[in-house]
Design a protein around this nucleic acid. Sequence first.
DNA 1: CGGTACAACATGTACATACAACATAAATTA
DNA 2: TAATTTATGTTGTATGTACATGTTGTACCG
Lengths: 361, 361
Amino acid sequence: MKEKAVPKYMQVKQEIQAWFHNGTVKPGDLMPSENELAERFGVSRQTVRQAFGELEGEGWLSRIQGKGTFVSAPQAGHGEIVRTVGLITTYISDYIFPHIVRGAEAALRSKGYRLLLSSTDNDKGREREALEMMLGQPLSGLIIEPTKSAEGNPNLDLYLALEYRGIPYIMLNEQYPELDGPCLKTDDALGGCLAVRHLLALGHEKIAGFFKMDDMQGVNRLKGFRQAYREKGLAIQPDLVVQYTTEEKGAKPLETALALLSRENGRPTALVCYNDELAVQLMEIIRQSGLSVPEDVAVVGFDDSSLATATETKLTTLTHPKSVMGQEAVELLLRMIEGKLSKPKGKLYTPELIVRSSTKR
Amino acid sequence: MKEKAVPKYMQVKQEIQAWFHNGTVKPGDLMPSENELAERFGVSRQTVRQAFGELEGEGWLSRIQGKGTFVSAPQAGHGEIVRTVGLITTYISDYIFPHIVRGAEAALRSKGYRLLLSSTDNDKGREREALEMMLGQPLSGLIIEPTKSAEGNPNLDLYLALEYRGIPYIMLNEQYPELDGPCLKTDDALGGCLAVRHLLALGHEKIAGFFKMDDMQGVNRLKGFRQAYREKGLAIQPDLVVQYTTEEKGAKPLETALALLSRENGRPTALVCYNDELAVQLMEIIRQSGLSVPEDVAVVGFDDSSLATATETKLTTLTHPKSVMGQEAVELLLRMIEGKLSKPKGKLYTPELIVRSSTKR
DNA sequence: CGGTACAACATGTACATACAACATAAATTA
DNA sequence: TAATTTATGTTGTATGTACATGTTGTACCG
């Protein structure tokens, strides 16, 4: 997955396009001269010319020999009503995201809107690409699942461009702290809390937790995990809390689990997993360790995905709105688009614990 | 006599345009290389490039790195560049379809195209809705997975509209018999054949097959199923072939399997399942019948989905290109869009048998 | 015979230079 | 003062070089 081959003139072009979006330059303005930009970007004048040439071809700029280069007025559209909504998720193919997409698509189709889809693979650079691509043509509104929401927002300028252009948008699952638009999410802290309360009520004391810490969902689920302990006046054994990132998810949590499970004493009797995907992997690890679920080790997942019931031992997990979230996001967004909403408010879904056969005692 | 103000690149451009008009070159032709023209016109390669660049922008030429410059088909371009590709699948959220979408999205994003997504839920009415919606605004091309491809095509008029408007399209998985566009699919008959051959080689004789018959994939997989029997000179026991439709898939195959497995004598020793999804469900049925996989009953699935390895008993299954199919569909479509393909041809993927622990003896 | 490696050639990117054409404002001149 | 010239800065044209990247056919090798 290496695509570092972005030509300079393309970078220049995108940078300049960003100026249009965020209002650095306005229609009618005189652009800096080719030579000045060349020096500012550290490229040759020819390279700037190539970028300008494409932008002129696309109608963003108009050049007048001897005078300078000007920003074109936003082509007063063909008057056509745009009925297209963008959806940017972190992943498309994995896990619960297809259900979110599905819910959104169904709701949009029933309203006569088209769905533009893109994904970021949890990479902020790709998030930028996706936003720029969507902004390149007319758009009614946007639904975005933030990328690595716990780590800041380098694409803030593009979100401001959205607001500048009056395109409403909604966040899914988490909100960037820098922004204040509406957001639909689950009460992840409560979910973590419910999971641990359930296990404590079953008599478990050594409960290990595995959380992905580069998005707010993991952070909040861990927060709930700790809160449940506090409620009981218990202290958490630090080495039973495993934190990892997206990049590490293929190995670190599995290896750590294997190490924890092979302990002679102090072996955890229950695992709280960041999501069902990890839970299923850890159940496999448990089997390989010669232990069984739920007799030796109880397991709790998150999201109530299809994986939860595909395995032989059905997984105890917490619900996630999934397709309902996609659907309601669209409904809220369409009301914002149609201007029928004064102050859009997000929604906090309350997760429910589904007790199946992976927890006991 | 100061009319010498015609730039060289403009003269070159006009000269080349004359070739289009007087038939010196025809659409699809390969233009002489930049270097050759530069020499012929007595100008530098850069000057030729500038002329070519404008002609490309106006739609006369298309350039392919490494191959050459080609004369475009005369399309009544509104000049406006549309870079949006539609993708219509039967389902979005389930099974292998997210992977196809993912492959397509990644390929499109890297080429600067946007992806319009819709789904039909395997319903021809919704397929019509989706097509109409996509046709409602400018579109570069379309990738479609046919709905119930074994049952005819009531939306033929819309496909003809696509051709009339010069919008290229590609079929996935199956092709409507009425149409003859390019199609990417797997060799499902071979897949069915491989599955049965494998089981016969293991000594199984009573092999039951479960096939969804309202799309061509199921029909072809059954065809391969029967062919493998013929090769061995064996006859198929008719009641071991279970056919069902999308609407029946929730109950009929499961109930029939339960009935077959509870037979005193004549119980099948192996099941060939339309796909992994059904295979996992049938493995559950087998467990409920007090039997085990693969000791009592062997199971073969199709598509090598994530379900195949999520279960305790890993599933023997046949590969499906999945995301590669989405990616290659996009690559083919973009070449068609850019007019760089004279006669687009589909592709037939060869499935491979992945032997895991669900087959034995 | 089939696969690999490589050479040849196509377009793509980047930089450099030089001068021409044009617009504008300041300086000069009638 | 008004017209003209000049200086300066802009984009436009033209050419050069160099290397990167993608495609294709051929020669080679197993």
